[in-house]
Design a protein around this nucleic acid. Structure first.
Lengths: 261, 261
DNA sequence: GTATCTTGATCGTTCGTTCAATCAAGATTA
DNA sequence: TAATCTTGATTGAACGAACGATCAAGATAC
């Protein structure tokens, strides 16, 4: 056997047996999912996998290399399933049914992943990375998901003739947001709903999400833009106490290099 | 003047003039927004505010104290505006119009904040914290937003008699996800849509989001649950290459303490 | 004069990474 | 068959850098 003494921790987490590299990957997914990229420590991953830290660097080069490997292990499957679902949807002539199939092709592979995996860690990794501003500079999401995103939007547009491209893109963003939020959930949904909504219940999550998102994009055509629209409620801050909208400088540089790592 | 030499960086970022404490808070919001809690360094905040690191600890006690202060400066305004919007909505007898007002009461204060602030940093802070699994253990989101969340769901239910509580909660989660995603966006939406969708365009974002989410909850009643539902697409992994669903141990402990900080 | 704010320096810790040495097997040679 | 070489995997130890936190001394305000 390759890793003789191997992992005390890995035994507890059920990742024994596998090769060191695979064991590191599995534990990395869990640690990144629980703490995010910056909050995770390579020593944490190594200890969980029952290997010395140096072995992690040996296999994956760097922390970012390990992070990337976690994505490359999961994403292709999701993308393939989405594309397959889109192909099926496009072969549907009835546009109403096609629309629902497109939405399902978008959300199903993700929720299926969350529900059927060892644990929901990768969903959290993905959600974390999606909401991380430095995600754009790493480019994982862009490189891996942008193509299928465009394909989804095209499919949505085909099922909704007459709707503007802007409408479709907005709708896509809302769909993505809802999905990512559920994927990354760490218990808030279940706590708030008193156990009524469980993100790990694949059937229920898919059923509700597909229905909601399909209805949103189908019946959610926004009213035309108005140049001067009366504000619907007063925005004047009531108490000066917590208000801090100095609004000193409007044009502010968007990005700031994160600290050296 | 209090801070005599003061900030070279603060001048660039337009936060001069203000008191040291306020300047630290403003820069903290920006740094946390750009890097997340773990990715941000107190030295980074201090340098940007033009003060020594020790002064940050003096004013806010710890890094988490500073983080909390960033939330406490912004959240109450949003919560108050939401509650005010909900009150207005509940006074509307027409349930269709009430529903739209409730949705608007939920999303408007947030998008308004993003669009009218110095920069969209707080939205990113919020999105990051929302998607951070350790968020639950910090409890900011829970303590600050749970009450108003329940109020929103009650208002939604009042406008949708006959719908199950489960439906409403799911819909609420999808709304929240869509909103958080747009709030935390770091440019992906605009890039993907080719500039068609700009999260900073408050009017457009609110108009599209309210329309989509209102339609989603109104017309998105899911079909009844079926015990045995034929799968709509094959889930068998095609290539074993990237597949790694060992599925060794199902019951896995959900949480793992993050490393000491 | 007292209290609050501000400063520079420094503490102990943990981080990601690096390095030379060791081990386990095959493949190659005699 | 026995000895040698080769290659990739693994290990423990250590490096320099950056981290959050702390403290005593100084400056400022009232």
């Amino acid at each position: 056997m390759k890793a003789a003494k191997s992992a005390r921790a890995a035994v507890e987490t059920g990742t024994a047996g596998a090769s060191s590299r695979e064991r590191i990957l599995q534990e990395a997914e869990r640690v990144f999912g629980a703490n995010g990229f910056d909050g995770a420590a390579m020593r944490q991953v190594a200890e969980a996998a029952g290997v010395p830290v140096a072995l992690v660097s040996y296999h994956f080069g760097s922390k970012e290399g390990l992070y990337r490997a976690v994505f490359e292990r999961r994403v292709p499957t999701v993308v393939e399933q989405r594309l397959a679902g889109l192909a099926i949807a496009m072969s549907e002539a009835d546009l109403d049914r096609r629309l629902e199939l497109v939405v399902k092709a978008l959300v199903f592979p993700m929720l299926h992943l969350r529900a059927h995996d060892r644990d929901p860690s990768f969903g959290r990794v993905l959600a974390h990375e999606t909401m991380d501003p430095s995600s754009e500079q790493r480019g994982f999401i862009r490189d891996m998901f942008d193509p299928v995103a465009r394909a989804v939007v095209e499919a949505l547009a085909s099922a909704l003739p007459g709707r503007t491209e802007e409408d479709i893109w907005w709708a896509y963003e809302f769909m993505l947001g809802a999905m990512v939020y559920v994927m990354g959930d760490a218990g808030r949904i279940e706590r708030l709903s008193g156990g009524l909504c469980r993100p790990d219940d694949e059937e229920g999550a898919v059923r509700h999400m597909v229905a909601f998102l399909t209805a949103g994009v189908r019946h959610g055509a926004p009213p035309p833009a108005t140049k001067s629209r009366r504000p619907l409620k007063s925005n004047k801050p009531k108490g000066g106490e917590t208000d801090a909208t100095g609004d000193v400088s409007k044009g502010r540089r968007q990005t700031e290099g994160r600290r050296a790592r």
